[in-house]
Design a protein around this nucleic acid. Structure first.
Length: 193
DNA sequence: TTAATGATGGGCT
DNA sequence: GCCCATCATTAAA
């Protein structure tokens, strides 16, 4: 597997969101390695009312204005985290939310983190995935293109699949935009696929 | 099967 | 004080 470079992320956000499908996210922990294949994403653009960065910089969304390939992790609903990858050029303020992942390696660690045994339920939602991978605010602002990072994005072998474009989930503004992407026919997308 | 609800706390007006 | 890029549990159909 090959590490994704910064140039992969410094492109138009809608393209990166679709190109991330089928890529792998790798987390190195003391207990072992966790690997998942990305099967569902959502794009958040700077002119989009649902985007955290659409109203300018605040202390929370600062990492979104960093260069592409940086992690943006935020805390929500009082108990959950969501994981995003910053995209496009530095200073723009766009990102891609990882909504669902297919477990590939480290299932036992994920089960322990989530406190459940049902594999189908491990990573089929943005916060479920974050918990399974042990991602919290400690990863906010880290460079995912650094090979020494304990959280990385990798390119596996090329795979053919059809991408479904549809509206996003869990937001109250910008619901008409088709900024959610997932792999057609994949069993690991979040509910409502 | 789907629909409604409670948990729980940071961020921003 | 109100809003959340959510999830697990309970209740209803």
């Amino acid at each position: 597997m090959k590490l994704l470079e910064k140039s992969f992320f410094e492109k138009e956000t809608l393209n990166v969101a679709q190109e991330l499908l089928g890529k792998f996210i790798v987390r190195e922990t003391g207990e072992g390695r966790i690997v998942g294949k990305i099967v569902e994403t959502e794009a958040y653009l700077k002119d989009d009312p649902a985007c955290h960065a659409s109203k300018g910089k605040t202390p929370r969304n600062l990492p979104m204005f960093e260069e592409g390939g940086v992690a943006y992790v935020y805390f929500t609903y009082g108990m959950y985290h969501c994981f995003n990858v910053v995209t496009n050029k530095k200073g723009i303020g766009e990102a891609v939310l990882i909504r669902a992942v297919e477990p590939v390696e480290g299932m036992e660690i994920m089960k322990g983190n989530r406190g459940i045994t049902e594999i189908k339920n491990l990573c089929n939602g943005p916060s479920k995935f974050a918990i399974a991978f042990g991602i919290d605010k400690g990863f906010n602002g880290v460079d995912l293109t650094d090979k020494n990072s304990s959280l990385k994005l990798m390119q596996g072998k090329n795979e053919n699949f059809e991408i479904i474009k549809t509206n996003r989930v869990g937001i109250s503004q910008g619901t008409d935009l088709l900024y959610r992407f997932y792999i057609k026919g994949n069993d690991w997308v979040s509910r409502r696929g």
